[in-house]
Design a protein around this nucleic acid. Structure first.
Lengths: 152, 152
DNA sequence: ACATGAAATGTTATGTTGTACCTTTAAGCG
DNA sequence: CGCTTAAAGGTACAACATAACATTTCATGT
């Protein structure tokens, strides 16, 4: 084992954990933020800001503009409630917002299925390698493109 | 050491190495591809497809559309002549197109300076971790956002 | 050299992702 | 109540990426 241990939330418990984390960071848990978080969490795979805007719009019965969603997603990412998948230009809810660490995404090029693995040994090694090169790592982006077990 | 060894090209030698690699892959080294490669290689840091289109346009004295550049960049990426930096939506020439391996980019959030390190131990470990999860890795994306030594 | 078909490039249009800027709304507080 | 400040809305636009189809270029066989 890699020695990492934490609890994964889902459904109402996840929303609640997100709220706690955001409030602990000194930010407000507004109605809009809750709606964006729930829309985000309703997707199985990473969703673009526009996907989320559309989903929130549908649920609200009114048009919600992308820029509002971007603002909130940026806040979520900096507060560890969500992650951005760089190679997909998309976002995914963090199943354990109360636990801060780097993670690794596996993205299927065929079906888009995205899973994540946590391996602190790898991510620590990446940070150390960056430091050896005189670089101060802040946010490692580790994603693997390829084929999921269903598509390979 | 991590046991990796190769030769880095630059200038005319790099262009020549790129040509050899592309032709060995059964693709043509056309005038347009050479111009795109040289424009790409002329940037110190990753350049967007539009940056490159603009640079080629300037050198040619005629308008070159982004479309054509994208086509060629895609070919370069699949042929190992260039890399895409996912977290920047940009491309960078590969200094050793004749040597196939994953690489790690360090991108400064302040000045944009991008360096790359080769550590096959890390990249191999990432591939293995993906395989353990039942995933078939094809293209690991390993980038570290943070601060370069000048900006930290 | 010439015809031919395949590959490469050009042209135009459009789709998708991300920001900038300013206005409006709502919450907290003297 | 009127002030300040954070959040959200509205509009426009910038930046990144692809699609569809026309035209040119190029290797090849004769």
């Amino acid at each position: 084992m890699h020695g990492h241990d934490h609890h994964e939330h889902s459904g109402a418990a996840l929303t609640h954990a997100a709220q706690m984390t955001l409030e602990k960071a000194g930010e407000q848990w507004t109605a809009m933020r809750e709606r964006v978080f729930e829309a985000l969490a309703s997707f199985d795979n990473p969703a673009s800001a526009y996907d989320i805007a559309e989903e929130v719009s549908k649920r609200e019965g009114r048009r919600v503009a992308a820029n509002s969603v971007y603002r909130i997603l940026d806040l979520f990412v900096t507060s560890n409630l969500a992650r951005r998948v760089e190679s997909e230009n998309a976002y995914i809810a963090n199943a354990h917002p109360d636990c801060l660490h780097d993670c690794i995404f596996l993205v299927c090029d065929t079906c888009g299925q995205t899973t994540h693995i946590d391996d602190d040994t790898i991510t620590r090694t990446v940070r150390v390698a960056a430091e050896k090169a005189g670089f101060s790592p802040e946010r490692p982006v580790i994603e693997v493109r390829g084929k999921c077990s269903d598509c390979s």
